[in-house]
């Protein structure tokens, strides 16, 4: 039991290390915009994290750039396109709907439709006989 508790404390302290730097904002809107943007940008280095979650040096740099741009009064759209120009669609967690990304956007729908058709065909053919 003691070991378990100390293990849990150890795990918890690792979490504490993951706290990211804090920035000072002039208005609440700026802070909100900053938080929103860093949660929508994917870390190019550590592929399945947003830059808000990632500890990579690159994410830290990108967060700083987002911060500077928010303070300069840039819009969300211009900040996201700044990142996209450099790192491609990959960096956006909400990638644009364009031919290269059609598979990404429509494959789930296609799979759903195929399954729907199969299920309907099967179920439709089944004879309903009330069980008695």
């Amino acid at each position: 039991m003691k070991q378990l508790i100390s293990f849990l404390i150890m795990i918890a302290s690792f979490q504490a290390l993951a706290v990211i730097e804090t920035y000072e904002f002039e208005t609440e809107a700026q802070e909100q915009l900053y938080t929103e943007i860093i949660h929508e940008l994917r870390c190019p280095k550590c592929q399945n994290q947003t830059i808000a979650e990632s500890n990579a040096g690159l994410s830290e740099d990108l967060r700083f750039i987002v911060y500077q741009k928010v303070m300069d009064g840039e819009t969300k759209r211009s900040i996201l396109s700044y990142m996209q120009e450099r790192y491609g669609d990959f960096v956006l967690y909400d990638p644009p709907v364009k031919p290269a990304n059609y598979f990404l956007w429509f494959a789930p729908l296609a799979v759903f439709l195929i399954i729907l058709i199969i299920v309907l065909a099967k179920v439709g053919r089944r004879k309903v006989t009330p069980e008695e």
Partner: peptide, 12 residues
Amino acid sequence: QGNLGIDLGVYG
């Protein structure tokens, strides 16, 4: 500062 790196899209 890594600014040119970011302009080049360097990630590793």
